[in-house]
């Protein structure tokens, strides 16, 4: 049984869903799972990691790893992997992972591929990912001899069942000394404490049809009811209504939630590219000819200012 390494991230003492999906996939394929957790908070997650299939948990609880620093995280990963026999390393395609793992791949002379949407570990290794921000997809063929680092987009794989009796062998390793030349001075928290767009399960996005910045409040109410994250089209980011970090599309974030609600967005090719991997798409637009309807699962032709508050009401009824 070959080792599969799963790099696990946590938040508020819980393993992130994207990491649980990968543990589940590896467990389902009968792999021996070595989970790696970095930072003091990772200690709290060892039981959960075991319950989802980790047989070994390697931790580096050094305080210096509380926040991401690429030099320190890279040193920690190299230390963790130095005597480990593995062919495949899985991680959720988070902001952190997308920064860290290309570096690790350079050091290990390994293959790395990010933002993958399909993974099958059962018969050999099958991986697919979107290309051109989702205008098509491609299979990733790896060089046989190379170690393979696969970063999976969250919300693509099912989370398996919890086995509360499962245990793992936990080991702690020390952070090697690093001559620090990258210094993270400060982390400035954004306005939103919500899940990032790229990890969100439900997204409510607004476009120019909302007329002005203040009307995004209406979308926030809708999003709060659903536990969703708010996104936007480029037109409204460029207009300064909302920050660029909220932009969905080919030159913004590529997202793939299970539910994407587009409000007052026309559906330009660059916007569609960034969200057409969503499982269910709802379009709310007063123009029946808007291209967004061609990609939508459900469409409401109507005035956003009438429909959205009603929708918030309906969801409240349903979810309370």
């Amino acid at each position: 049984m070959s080792n599969v390494v799963v790099f696990c991230e946590s938040q508020n003492g819980k393993v992130k869903k994207g990491s649980l999906e990968l543990l589940s996939a590896a467990r389902g394929a009968g792999k021996n799972i070595v989970a790696i957790g970095l930072g003091p908070a990772a200690k709290e997650t060892t039981d959960e990691l075991a319950h989802y299939g980790a047989k070994n948990v390697m931790l580096c609880s050094d305080e210096k790893l509380s926040n991401y620093n690429p030099q320190l995280y890279l040193a920690a990963m190299l230390e963790a992997l130095k005597d480990l026999d593995f062919e495949v390393l899985l991680a959720s395609s988070s902001v952190l992972a997308r920064d860290l793992f290309p570096r690790l791949a350079a050091k290990l002379e390994a293959a790395v591929t990010s933002d993958c949407t399909e993974l099958d570990l059962n018969s050999g290794l099958q991986v697919r990912r979107p290309m051109y921000a989702g205008k098509c997809t491609a299979q990733v063929d790896f060089k046989d001899s190379a170690k393979k680092i696969i970063l999976m987009r969250p919300n693509q794989l099912p989370v398996g069942s919890v086995d509360n009796s499962a245990t793992a062998e936990v080991s702690e390793f020390a952070l090697p000394a690093v001559d620090l030349k990258t210094i993270v001075k400060e982390v400035v928290k954004g306005a939103s404490e919500k899940i990032d767009l790229t990890e969100a399960n439900i997204i409510v996005s607004g476009g120019r049809g909302l007329k002005e910045a203040a009307n995004f409040k209406m979308l926030e109410d809708l999003a709060d009811t659903l536990g969703a994250t708010v996104g936007a089209s480029r037109a409204v980011c460029d207009a300064g209504w909302v920050p660029h970090s909220m932009q969905v599309g080919q030159t913004g974030k590529t997202v793939a939630p299970t539910l994407y609600i587009a409000v007052g967005i026309s559906g330009a090719i660059q916007h569609l590219a960034g969200m057409n991997g969503s499982k269910v798409i709802v379009a709310i637009n007063n123009d029946p000819e808007a291209p967004i309807f061609q990609k939508a699962t459900y469409g409401i032709v109507g005035d956003a200012f009438e429909v959205v508050p009603k929708l918030t009401e309906e969801f409240k009824k349903l979810l309370n």
């Binding site: 791949a105 591929t113 290309m131 098509c136 491609a138 299979q139 990733v140 009603k310 929708l311």
Partner: peptide
């Protein structure tokens, strides 16, 4: 270390279901 093969276009989506009625009924 890797190359891309076997490209595919996104699957055709079934046609959109347009919801009828006034805003309340649509919601």
């Amino acid at each position: 270390k890797l190359n891309y093969t076997n490209f595919a276009l996104p699957p055709e989506k079934p046609p959109v279901k347009i919801l009828e009625g006034d805003a309340g009924a649509q919601a």
